[in-house]
Amino acid sequence: MLNPSGTLNVAVIVKLEPDFSEGNVSYNSDGTLNRAETKNVLGPHSAVASSAALYAKVKYGANVSVATMGPPIAEAALQQSQLICNADELHLYSDRIFAGADTLATSEVLRAGIKKMANEQGIDIVFSGHRASDGETGQTGPQTAWKLGYPFIGNVIDYDIDKERGYVRLQRLIKNYGHNDIIEELESPLPVFITLDPSYSPFFNTVSQRLNLALNQNDAEKRSSRYKEYLKTFSAQSLELNLKSVGLPGSPTIVYKVEKIPRAKANRKADIIDGYSQENLSQVARRIYGILGETIIK
């Protein structure tokens, strides 16, 4: 463990994202997301990452820091994350110069921020979500890991820590789309950077852990209602960042243009059938049977 006192320090990187639930999401007439009218919430994958930190807090008494980069409204994500993981510290990295950053420049900010956490004692595990749901790249996590010099381990579905040895043991899910999935079991010395598989859900398997969980949830409610007391806001300067490595100057990539995706060439020529005609559907049924044959009739 990095902290000589024996406390496990963990961090969570979260993101404020559009809320895709019914009633909160709004689409433009052309099918694209209406960002102005869509509410923003803690992204679902960020929530999963927060729950992994909760596990560390309940089971190992970890000290939890949560961070996000964004404009001041991104505080909402920190607050919602704190409600999940009972965070001890919230970091907002907010500076006009960070605007327009691509993943490399973003991860530079996060790297610097993580270094500042937990009184600069060093973070043992950083958690982040699988990907952001608004079509994010899934690159920020691994790039931040690399910049921190932490081994990156993705798609984690379970982990446990051996505090004595300073090791973490994990299971990760490797999706071989179309094939059977693989569960890989790994072991690594701390520190590590973990992204959680969307299916991750912490499980607390003793009465004591459950009692501790309840205490933490109780506490989390109180804390998140006064989250500002836990909030520290950092600028590029207070993070001691080189201005050439963040925001636009630090971004190798640019968005060149955004356009509507033109309709692809038709691959098939569809027979168009009136769905309200029983006669037509009877024909469709016959064709389905013709292809599927005995599978559906035993």
Binding site: V207, R210, L211, A214, L215, N218
Partner: peptide, 16 residues
């Protein structure tokens, strides 16, 4: 109940 129970090392465990 939980507020009192926590003082004696007890509590509530749900989903069990």
């Amino acid at each position: 109940a939980l507020n009192s129970a926590e003082k004696t090392g007890g509590g509530i465990v749900t989903g069990i």
